[in-house]
Design a protein around this nucleic acid. Structure first.
Length: 497
RNA sequence: GCCGGUAUCGUCUAGGGGUUAGGACACAUGGUUCUCAACCAUGGAACCGGGGUUCGAAUCCCCGUACCGGUACCA
């Protein structure tokens, strides 16, 4: 089995295309087949090398490695359509001599007018076939005379073209609605439907899995396979991904490209797992499974027929799941850019990363995506009691808890840093005895003073994080982080001001 | 307009002639916790409409409707 993903390098990899790539990969992976990456850059205007690189990078990030294609040494290359022009031309000549194709000299404006009239009279707007009978010799003469021509396929009249779609079953089209379409443009470059067939055939693709938007291209492609006498591959058209308003997923819905999701701090395994769930189900009421397991279970016949609405909430849930599974070092590494953006991390020293590996995982357990990690860790790096006390509720809570606060300031100024849960709890125990307060009345004031926030991480975790962070110090490229004792003093000063 | 595709909770889906129509996300309520989040429990929530076939239709067939895609010298 050989499958392919064939994007046009005209922008970032869209999640809908990523899902198509994923389905291809899952099928190949599950069947021990070959996954080919081909670049369809026949539109010279819009194709860029940057976007080809970006797409390749996104596929790799998602874990969808290709066995053959650009950047590999496969023996079905080249894998960039812009490098295959000679192949397309050679095959066009073959079609010409087989009389399956012909030169067409019709002017764009004439075609435009024909189309307009056809539409107005309720007829399918297909090419009239006016140049069908221009002989090859005559055509050659006109071209030598400076006229430009396209090459069109001679589409048989009044025929039914049927193909079996692996996800939808038999699909049939009448050639009555298919005009003689363009194979080679007047500049010699291949049109999509033509290049695809040549490439899929020559690259020995056995299963073409692509978006539903290509379903009406398929009969044209079948006709081409027929003209060449080639056996067509199996086709499978997967439905499209929609936005929450059931329209095309676009920027106003938020992120739409793989790159954007990556930048927001979604894990690749989460995006891939979520995408697999959109239009397919692994069965047994299971949803969260590693890619390899998904590949084992994947069957094209089980892919849903209807378009799917992209649900960011569910993606967030999947992401939270994988965030909890991720190794601490990895989370620290992945969080670094977000912390650096805030100016809290100036260099990824081993000490700083080791410290983060301890503090990021508990914070990450309560966010949807890593982008939110800085808000969750703000208490460490941006301690500002004066600012916090500007809030009326916060101030009132602090004022009401003066005895606890005073005792805290006193205790913390005289005891050792609370670098672990036990020393912190010991301190809480001393305060309980001294003030007679317990539970919320005791812990909430401690939170206000030590974190400068009224909500956040468990204090058991937060306070040792503060103390250890203060010890790591700025020389390691971290912080600065104020110690608990400095915070207590600063807080009391701010409260009295 | 024409051609093609699709239709189960708000969303993703399981099921597929007889089921209390199952699960997940989201939502609501409760529990837990110093707090938020997380977590746990409970709950509300669906077979597009109309005909037909059948003892029986959400499931099969037809028609309609809605939505999506295509209708290029874009891909």
């Amino acid at each position: 089995m050989r499958v392919r993903f064939a994007p046009s390098p005209t922008g970032q990899l869209h999640v809908g295309n990523a899902r198509t790539a994923l389905f291809n990969w899952l099928l190949a992976r599950g069947a021990g087949g070959t996954f080919v990456l081909r670049i369809e850059d026949t539109d010279a205007e819009r194709s860029t090398p940057e976007s080809e690189r970006a797409i390749a990078e996104d596929l790799e990030w998602l874990g969808l490695r290709w066995d053959e294609g650009v950047g590999t040494s496969g023996d079905h290359g080249p894998y960039r359509q812009s490098e295959r022009t000679h192949i397309y031309r050679a095959h066009a000549v073959e079609l010409l001599s087989l009389k399956h194709a012909y030169h067409c000299f019709c002017l764009p404006e004439d075609l435009e007018r024909e189309r307009y009239h056809a539409l107005r009279e309720g007829r399918p707007p297909k090419y009239s076939g006016r140049c069908r009978d221009v002989s090859r010799d005559h055509a050659r003469a006109r071209i030598e005379g400076g006229e430009s021509a396209v090459i069109r396929l001679r589409v048989p009249e009044n025929r039914e073209v049927v193909f079996t779609d692996l996800v939808r079953g038999d699909v049939r089209f009448s050639t009555e609605v298919i005009g003689d379409f363009v194979l080679l443009r007047s500049d010699g470059s291949p049109a999509y439907n033509y290049a695809v067939v040549i490439d899929d055939a020559l690259m020995e693709i056995t299963h073409v899995i692509r978006g539903e938007d290509h379903i009406s291209n398929t009969p044209r492609q079948m006709l081409l396979y027929e003209a060449f006498g080639w056996r067509p591959p199996a086709f499978a058209h997967v439905s499209l991904v929609l936005g929450p308003d059931h329209g095309v997923l676009s920027k106003r819905h938020g992120a739409t490209s793989v790159k954007e999701f990556r930048d927001r701090g979604y894990l690749p395994e989460a995006l891939a797992n979520y995408l697999a769930l959109l239009g397919w189900s692994p069965g047994e009421d299971q949803e969260l499974l590693p890619l390899e397991e998904l590949a084992r279970r994947f069957r094209l016949e089980d892919v849903g027929h209807s378009a799917g609405v992209f649900d960011v909430e569910k993606l967030a849930w999947v992401n939270r799941h994988y965030l909890k599974l991720a190794a601490p070092e990895r989370l620290a590494q992945l969080s670094a850019p977000y912390l650096a953006r805030e100016g809290w991390l100036t260099g990824a020293s081993p000490e700083a990363l080791a410290y983060l590996a301890g503090v990021v995982p508990p914070a990450a357990a309560s966010v949807d995506r890593l982008e939110q990690i800085s808000a969750r860790l703000r208490f460490l790096f941006d301690y500002a009691p004066a600012r916090a006390l500007e809030d009326g509720t916060f101030r009132a809570e602090a004022l009401a808890a003066r005895p606890v606060i005073d005792a805290l300031v006193d205790d913390v100024s005289r005891s050792a840093p609370m670098v672990d849960r036990e020393t912190f709890r010991a301190m809480v125990g001393r305060l309980r005895e001294r003030t007679g307060q317990k539970g919320k009345a005791l812990l909430h004031p401690i939170r206000l003073v030590l974190t400068g926030e009224s909500e956040g991480l468990e204090l058991d975790l937060a306070v040792p994080a503060i103390e250890r962070g203060a010890l790591v110090g700025e020389s390691a490229g971290l912080g600065p982080i104020m110690s608990a004792s400095a915070r207590a003093a600063a807080f009391r000063a701010a409260l009295q001001a």
